[in-house]
Design a binder for these strands. Structure first.
Ligand SMILES: [Zn+2]
Ligand SMILES: [Zn+2]
Ligand SMILES: [Zn+2]
Ligand SMILES: [Zn+2]
Lengths: 163, 163
DNA sequence: CAGTGTTATGTTATAATGTAACAATTTCCG
DNA sequence: CGGAAATTGTTACATTATAACATAACACTG
C-alpha cells in the first residue's frame, strides 16, 4: 500500500513541491500577507508529504528541524495558511493538506483513499451545483460546504481485486 | 436565535421523540441487537435535543440522571447507535445526532445552521448522484461520503436580512 | 537610525475529544 | 442453576486544540 500517486513515475514530486511554494509566495505577495520562515516551512512539509498530516505530526517534524515548537506554534501557522487558502483542513481526519489552486476562491471536496492515504481535491464539480440546488430548496444560505468522500482509490481498488 | 424548527408551532416535539424511540425499538428488534436502558437513554437525550450534542455533553446529561458515567460509557453507546444506524456523527462538529430514517440504509448529508444549530438531514438527493459520477471518473470506490454544509437556515437568514 | 506600535513567535498551562486495558456486572441459554 | 457472552464500570492515558501572557521580530515614523 505504498503507491501514493505522487510517488508514481508520472509525478515529478520535487517540481510539484517547488511550484506549490512559488504559488504560495505569489498569493501572499498579492494579498500583502507575510509568508514567514515558519509558515513557509509548515506549508513545505505538507507539500513534501503530499497527503494529509495532523497538527501534531507537523509539530514533530518542526521539532526534528531543531525548532523549539509547541502546539500553539503549529496551530497558528495552520490558521494563517487556512486563511490564505494555501491549505485545507480535512475534518474527517483532523488533518491538513496543501491546496492545489490557492489562486482562486473555490469550494472544495476530497476523495480520500482509506488504504493509501492519497487525497484527490475536486473543486467546482457538479457536486457543488447539486448542493446549491438542494440548499435553495431549503432556503439555506451556504457558507462552507464540507465534502469528504472516503473509500478506495483506483490503484488500491485494483490491488484488492487482484488478490 | 432560539427558533429551532423543532420548537416551532408546527412541530409536536413530544410526539417526535416518541416516534423516534419507537422506530429505534423496531430497528433493534429486527436486527436482534439490544437497545439497553443506557443506550435507549442516550438516544432519547439526542432526540430530546433534536440537534447535535457532543459526547461530553451527553456524558454530562447522563451524570445528571444520577448515573456514574465515564467517557467510555458514552462512546460505547454512541458506537452501538452508529452501527445500528440510529444516529449519525457530524464530523465538522465532533457531535452526534439522531437519524430520521434508521429503517433504510442511506447515505446522508447535513445542512447545519451556524446561527441556531438546527440540522437538516438530506438523503438520497442529487448530491449523492453527483458524487457517484465524480467518483466513477476517478475510478474511486466510495465507502462513506461525508457531506456537511454549514451556513444559515431559512429563518436565520430572514432574521439577518431584517436587521 | 532610534523610538514605537504591530505582528509573530515562544512558553506554560489547560480544555476538549477519544481509547486501551482490565474488572465487575448483567444477560442469555442450555 | 452454571458457564459463556455481552454490557457496563473503572482507571489510566492518548490525541487534538486553545487561553493567556511573555518575548522577539518587523515595519513605519520622524
Ligand atoms: Zn507532489
Ligand atoms: Zn489508494
Ligand atoms: Zn422534534
Ligand atoms: Zn437557523
Amino acid at each position: 500500500m505504498d503507491h501514493h500517486l505522487f510517488k508514481s513515475p508520472g509525478h515529478d514530486h520535487g517540481r510539484c513541491v517547488k511550484t506549490a511554494m512559488n504559488r504560495a509566495e505569489q498569493v501572499c505577495q498579492r494579498s500583502g500577507s507575510r509568508l514567514t520562515t515558519l509558515r513557509r516551512r509548515v506549508l513545505e512539509l505538507l507539500w513534501q508529504n503530499h497527503a494529509p498530516l495532523s497538527a501534531y505530526e507537523l509539530l514533530e517534524l518542526l521539532v526534528r528541524d531543531g525548532r523549539k515548537a509547541q502546539p500553539p506554534t503549529i496551530y497558528r501557522s495552520l490558521e494563517f495558511l487556512l486563511e490564505c487558502g494555501l491549505i485545507h483542513r480535512v475534518e474527517s481526519l483532523n488533518a491538513y493538506i496543501g491546496c492545489d489552486q490557492p489562486q482562486k476562491e473555490h469550494e472544495t471536496g476530497f476523495f480520500i483513499c482509506e488504504s493509501c492515504g492519497y487525497v484527490a481535491e475536486l473543486s467546482d464539480s457538479s457536486i457543488n451545483l447539486s448542493i446549491s440546488k438542494n440548499a435553495e430548496l431549503l432556503g439555506f444560505r451556504v457558507h462552507k460546504p464540507t465534502i469528504e468522500i472516503s473509500g478506495l482509490c483506483k490503484f488500491c481498488t485494483e490491488d484488492n481485486d487482484e488478490h
